[in-house]
Design a protein around this nucleic acid. Sequence first.
DNA 1: AACTGTGGCTCAACGT
DNA 2: ACGTTGAGCCACAGTT
Length: 769
Amino acid sequence: MKTLLDIDYVTRDDKVIIRLFYKKKDGREIEEVTDFKPYFYAVPVDTEKLKGELKKFDKILKIEKKRMVDMKKEIDVLKITVKQPKDVSELRDKIKNLEYCKEVREAAIPFVERYLIDSGLIPMENSEEVGLRIAAFDMEVYNPRGEPNPERDPIIMISYADNLGLKRVWSYKHENIKLDFLEILKDESMIIKKFIDTVNEQKIDIITSYNGDNFDFPYLKDRASRLKINLSLGIDGSVIKLERRGMNLGARVRGRPHIDMYPICRQVFNLSRYQLEDIYLEIFGRKKLDIDVGEMAKVWNSEDIDGLKKLFEYSLSDAVSTLEIAMTLLPLQYELSRITRDLIYESSRSGSGQRVESLLMRKAHEMNILAPNKPSDRLAEERQRTSYTGAYVVEPIKGIHDNIVLFDFRSLYPSILISYNIDPSTIDCECCPEDNYKTPTQHYFCKKKKGFIPRILSELVTKRIEIKKKLREEKDPEKRRLLDVEQHAIKLLANSAYGYYAFARARWYSKGCAESIAALGREYIHKTIREVENFGFKVVYGDTDSVYVIKPKEVDKGKIIDDANSFLKKINEELPEAMELEFEGFYPRGIFITKKRYALMDEKGILIVKGLETRRRDWSNIAKETQNKVLNAILHEKNPEKAAEIVKGVVKRIRKGDVALRDLAINTQITKGLGEYVQPGPHILAAKKAMKRGYEFKRGDIITYVVTKKGVSISDKARIIDFVEEGDYDAEYYINNQVLPAVLRILEALGYSEDELKGFGKQMRLGSF
DNA sequence: AACTGTGGCTCAACGT
DNA sequence: ACGTTGAGCCACAGTT
C-alpha cells in the first residue's frame, strides 16, 4: 500500500523520465516512468494534407489519426507525439499556423498534469492508511523597525512541531535560557541547517506552514543564499523552488509537498482577519499564546529572562498551532486531491473553478472527449464583460414575524443542471428541435444524448448518496469521519458546477448554460411562492432557492408544521425527480429589514443573523455588539425600551472615552493596488499613512484601522490600529456613523413611525441619553 | 462665501 | 456567478 505525494520529470541523456514520489508504510519509494511521451492534438482542415505538412518537423516522433468527440460532433484529429515537453510549446505555434491545420488542442497542459490525466493515478490515495509524517514550522525574524528586510534582518528562531511528537525551537545568542524544547545553537546558519536536518531525520512527508508561500519560505531562501546554505529540503536533496502563481508565490518542495494553511483557511473560513490566532480561536474555541510582535526586537536584545522565555514559547506555539490546524483541515484537502486527481501541492492552492476543471479534464480523457482550449486573455476579458440575469430575491415584508417556516430546495442548481441535461454539448442541439428540455431563456437542451457535465454531476451525486447511506450505518468514529469528509468534498465540487459555467477562464465556459440554470431556478422559486400562497401561507421573504413563510392567524406550532409538511408532499409530487423542496427550519420569531438583511431566532433561542452589520468585518465591534444586543432584546423579549436603554449606555461609554481600541477597529480589504483607487476610502488612506512608517501592503491584505481624533474627514482620521493610542478615537463618529445607524435600522423596521424615529434618532444624536 | 442636501459614483461585503 | 445594501467621497445646485 502506498500513497502518491508528488510527481516531477527530469531529462537524462535526452530522455524524459517521470518520477513518482510515493510514501509507503515502511518508507519512501521513487518510481520512474520512461515510456510516457508528451503529445497534443491538431485538428486538420484536410487530414492527409496536414499529415504531409507535418513531415518536415523532425521533432515529431509519431502521428496518429484519432476519432474524438468535440462538443456536439465527432471529428478526426491527429495526435502528435514528441520527445520533450518543451517540444510541445515549440511546435504547437508553428503547427497551429499551417495551412491545413484548423487549430491545436490540449497543447498547453503541463507535462506532469498530462501524465496524471493519462495514467489515471490518484494522488493521496491511501494517505490515511500509510500514516503520513507531517511537520509544521514557523520563523521569527528580527524586526527592529516594523517590517523585516532579508537584506539586513536575520532569522532569530525557527520553531518546529511534527505529528510524531517532536517539538523544538532553535535559536542562538541566549545561552542562559533553559526550556525543554529550546536548543540554543551557534548562529543563524546553524538553526537553518538544524531545521533542514530535522526534516530529513524525522522522514517528514508533508511540510505545513502558515503563509509559508509568501513569507517564511521566500525569507528563508533569501537568508540561506546570503549565508551560502543549500535549502535542500527535497526528498531527493533538491532545493526548494519558489513559483509564481498569479499574484502570489508558491513554495515547492520536491517529493515532500509543502502545504500552506493560510490560503486554505481563507477559503474555508469567513472571518474578519486571518492571523494564526484568529484561525486557532475559530477552530478550537480557545486562544493561543500571543505576544506583541512589535516588542520582539526589544526583548531579543534584552536580558529579560521571563520576556525571552515567553518569546520562545510563543514561537513554539505558532508551529504547534499550525500543526493542529493542519491535522484538522488536511483530510478534506486530501479528499479533494483524490477526487480531482490533482497533486496535493496544486489542489491545496486551487480555487473551485480549477478543481472542477481538473475533474473534467480527467473524465474527458476517459470518455475520448477533446478538451476545449483555455480562453485567451482577450476572450476571458470579453466573457467577463457580458453578464446575465441571475437569481430572484423577494422583497421582504419588513418587521417582526412569528412562527416562521423555512423551505428550501436541496441543491437547486446541481439538480437543475442534471434534470435539464444542461451542457455545452446539448445546448440548442439539432437532433431534437421539438421534443427537448425547454427553459425560460432562448435556449433548450437535448433529450436524446446525455451531456458530459450532467453525467459527471449525476455520478457525483449518486456517489454522495451512497456515502451518506454508509455513514448512517457506520459505527466506528474514525471511519465515520472519513466518510463525512468524502461526502463533504463531493458536495463542494457539485455546488461549484453552476459557477464553473460562468467562470470566464473555464474551458467548458457556457453563458447559455449558466443563464438557463439561473432562469429555471427563478421559475421554480416563483412556482413555489405561487403554490405556497394558494396553500394559505404568506411569503415574508425568499432568496434564490429559499422561502420564508408564515401562516397568518395560526398560533399553534404543531398545526403550522403539519400544514408545511402537507404542502411539501403536494409540491414534491409535481417536481422533477432530482428536485426536492425541503423543510429547512422553524423559527419562533424573526425580523426582516431589507433584501439579504434579516435575523431569526431558532427554537433554542439562538440568533441567526444575515447580512446585517453584526456579520460584517467592515464594522466596529462596538456597533456590531450593540446591534446584536438590540436584536436579542427585540427577538427574545419584544422589548424596544430595553433596546433603547442598551444603546443609551453604549453611547455614554463611547463619550466617556473608555471603549477599548479592539472594539473600535474596522477591517477592510485592499482589493487593488494602492495607487489604482479612483476614490480612496478610509482604509486606503490609513494604509498610505502607515507606508510612510515602513509598513508594506499588497492586494488582498486586510487593513485594521480606527477613526481617531486627529483630522478633518473620516479618511483623514483613519489610522492603522498599531499606531493608535488607547482612548484616541472620534467618539462622534462611532456614535453617529457606527452604533446609531446599525441600531436605528432595526428599530425602523419595527414600524416606528418616521417622525417618531427621527425624534428618537435626534435625541440620541443630540446626546440626551 | 460658506453651508446643506442630493444624486451619482466607487468600493466593499455580504446572501444564495 | 449575480443580486443587493450601504458607506463615504465628490460635484453641483440651491440656500443662508
